[in-house]
Design a protein around this nucleic acid. Structure first.
Length: 605
DNA sequence: TTAGGGTTAG
């Protein structure tokens, strides 16, 4: 109604042949001057001059001019919230626009608390919040995160009848999502009458941030069905990240196909996400091809490629790419160096690793972080240089963490150095982050040395601490669907046929001389029960499922959340011969490519 | 009269 009447008046004014110079119109001219003065400002100095001029012209009394002063100062990149605040304080009766502006400024300055305090003042002074007030405040809550305050704001929104504003709704989805309240987040989305791309984006990102990758991909399909399938690169990058985490190569390929059909000229972020997806889903060749075809590579593209090569055990290739990066004049950072050192470590390139570690400090001025030291301990440990690894830990300027000690412990086991193993285990057991498997490794080392009393003591200590294993799972992609198996899984709809297959697999394995390695079963149960538990490990169930549902000779790809146990490793090597399949397993750190009874990790992982 | 939401890689 108000807008109609304003439009009507404008029409009347415009249609007059000879408009008289009313005092109101000259006032508007002052406002115009004020806006043009403010628009020209590019820094605080210029702004202060404009401010002085506005005061001199007596325009500050006009609320429109004063509001624009506050807004320019609070929201410009060169602005100052302190200065904006001082102007705001001089206003007699700031209204919702001025309060909204101040809150936006605080949020822009990453000062969420101050935004909330300003809102409180707004309500206390009886200024009515509007639909522009809440998106800003909800963003502040999402950042803090402050779900309780967010819920109070939600109540205010309902009280004021602003719940149907699409901006307010999208902000609510985002706020609940960032605060981890996925249920409410979905409920707000479900109740919307009209949705925008931002609504879908907020919802999909919320699921992505909580690691709910399957939902993320399902929602993308729903979005497509509702006709929102546009070239939203940012959402596609989120989804690619979902594919990468899940190891869903076929789904990732679909996204790639979509991009090729619908987006002309992929940008560097999308291309890098695609490369990472291919590399981390096991398709090294495809990732490498895309990388080579990239018109413009940046530091992140190189970083992804180097880490990808490291994960696949191609250390020399990784170093070659690193050299190319330097030749391109790109400056490496600490994350790039983690990839470089991993590349050296996974390929056993000790000398090169040491050189890179020194170069990082001397040439690029990067102080080593705990991750870099972790890579170095791993590098030396793998190469059997246990004493040097221990020396490095002792001499480093940072407090060693569990990752370092665990790395040393496993190297000690592989290279049969009980003394170093005991030192590492002793340090590990002092930390809160100790794991049941740490005790098992030490106990197995004692067993190898036939120190049975120490075996018993270590096992007793482990049980007395009440340590339990983290639940392990394996994902396997069959016909573009991810199937998840946990150890001893009985919940899968096709459990029966999976266990039937498992039985057949074990039968054939026996002929190949396989006998279960029960030394790492962490339960205090008899030998038969241990064998039973081993045979139900999630990776074996996933392989069985894939053998049933994929054609003969086709590769099998598995993603697991934990490190592989010795028994699953031996078992998978043998399965690759018996069933003549290439099996790729991605664990948290690297790929195992099983083929013809051999694993690419050379039995050290 | 002014303005607000989502999202982009290691």
């Amino acid at each position: 109604m108000i807008r109609t009447s304003v439009l009507h008046q404008t029409h009347v004014l415009v249609s007059r042949e000879d408009p008289p110079q009313t005092p109101e119109l000259s006032f508007k001219l002052g406002e115009k001057e004020c806006v043009s003065l403010l628009k020209k400002c590019g820094n605080m100095e210029e702004f202060k001059q404009a401010h002085a001029r506005i005061l001199k012209l007596g325009l500050f009394g006009d609320s429109f001019c004063a509001s624009n002063l506050v807004a320019t100062c609070a929201l410009s990149d060169w602005g100052s919230m302190d200065y904006a605040c001082s102007i705001f304080r001089q206003m007699d009766e700031p209204g919702s626009f001025e309060f909204n502006t101040m809150m936006r400024g605080h949020v822009k300055d990453m000062n969420s608390e101050e935004a909330m305090i300003t809102y409180k003042e707004m309500v206390e002074r009886g200024v009515k919040p509007d639909n522009f007030t809440y998106p800003t405040l909800l963003k502040a809550c999402a950042r803090l995160p402050a779900v309780e305050e967010g819920m109070q704001l939600h109540a205010h929104i309902l009280k004021l009848g602003l719940e149907n504003d699409v901006f307010v709704q999208n902000s609510l989805i985002s706020m609940y999502g960032k605060c981890g309240e996925i249920g409410v987040c979905r409920a707000v989305f479900e109740q919307m009458n009209e949705r925008s791309v931002a609504s879908w984006s907020a919802l999909i990102t919320a699921h992505a941030s909580l690691g709910m990758w399957s939902d993320c991909l399902r929602l993308l399909g729903d979005m497509s069905n509702e006709g929102y399938w546009r070239a939203e690169e940012s959402i596609l990058v989120s989804v690619l990240s979902g594919c990468t985490h899940l190891g869903a190569l076929d789904l990732g390929r679909s996204v790639h196909g979509f991009l090729l059909r619908n987006v002309s000229g992929l940008n560097v972020i999308v291309e890098t996400s695609l490369i990472e997806m291919y590399l981390k889903c096991g398709s090294l060749y495809k990732g490498m091809c895309l990388f080579q075809k990239m018109a413009k590579k940046n530091k992140l593209s190189y970083s992804v490629m180097i880490s990808g090569l490291a994960m696949h055990g191609y250390g020399r290739e990784g170093l070659r790419i690193f050299t190319e990066m330097l030749e391109q004049g790109l400056e490496p950072d600490d994350v790039v160096y983690v990839g470089v050192l991993n590349a050296c470590s996974h390929a056993g390139l000790v000398q090169e690793g040491l050189q890179c570690f020194n170069r990082m400090k001397l040439e690029h001025g990067i102080e080593p972080t705990i991750q870099h030291y972790g890579c170095m301990v791993d590098l030396m440990g793998r190469a059997g240089r246990i004493d040097e690894a221990l020396e490095l830990i002792k001499s480093m300027p940072l407090e060693p963490n569990d990752v370092l000690w665990r790395s040393l412990l496993s190297a000690s086991k592989v290279h049969n150095n009980l003394q170093a193993g005991e030192i590492a285990a002793k340090q590990l057991f002092k930390l809160d982050s100790q794991k049941a498997s740490d005790y098992v490794v030490l106990s197995n080392m004692y067993a190898q040395a036939q120190r049975w009393e120490d075996v018993a003591r270590t096992r007793t200590n482990m049980f007395s601490k009440g340590l339990s294993q983290r639940p392990g799972f394996s994902l396997v992609e069959v016909k573009r669907k991810m199937h998840r198996f946990v150890s001893q899984d009985a919940g899968h709809p096709q459990s029966e046929s999976v266990y039937e297959m498992l039985y057949q697999m074990e039968w054939q394995l026996k002929f190949e001389g396989y006998s279960p390695d029960t030394t790492q079963v962490l339960c205090d149960v008899d030998e038969e029960e241990k064998k039973q538990r081993l045979s139900g490990h999630s990776q074996k169930l996933a392989i069985a499922y894939a053998l049933i549902h994929t054609s003969q000779g086709s590769p099998i790809r598995i993603v697991r959340n934990l490190r592989m146990c010795n028994d699953c490793h031996t078992y998978t090597k043998l399965i690759s011969i018996i069933f003549d399949r290439e099996i790729t397993v991605r664990d948290r750190h690297l790929f195992h490519h099983f083929k013809d009874g051999v694993c690419s990790c050379r039995d050290y992982w």
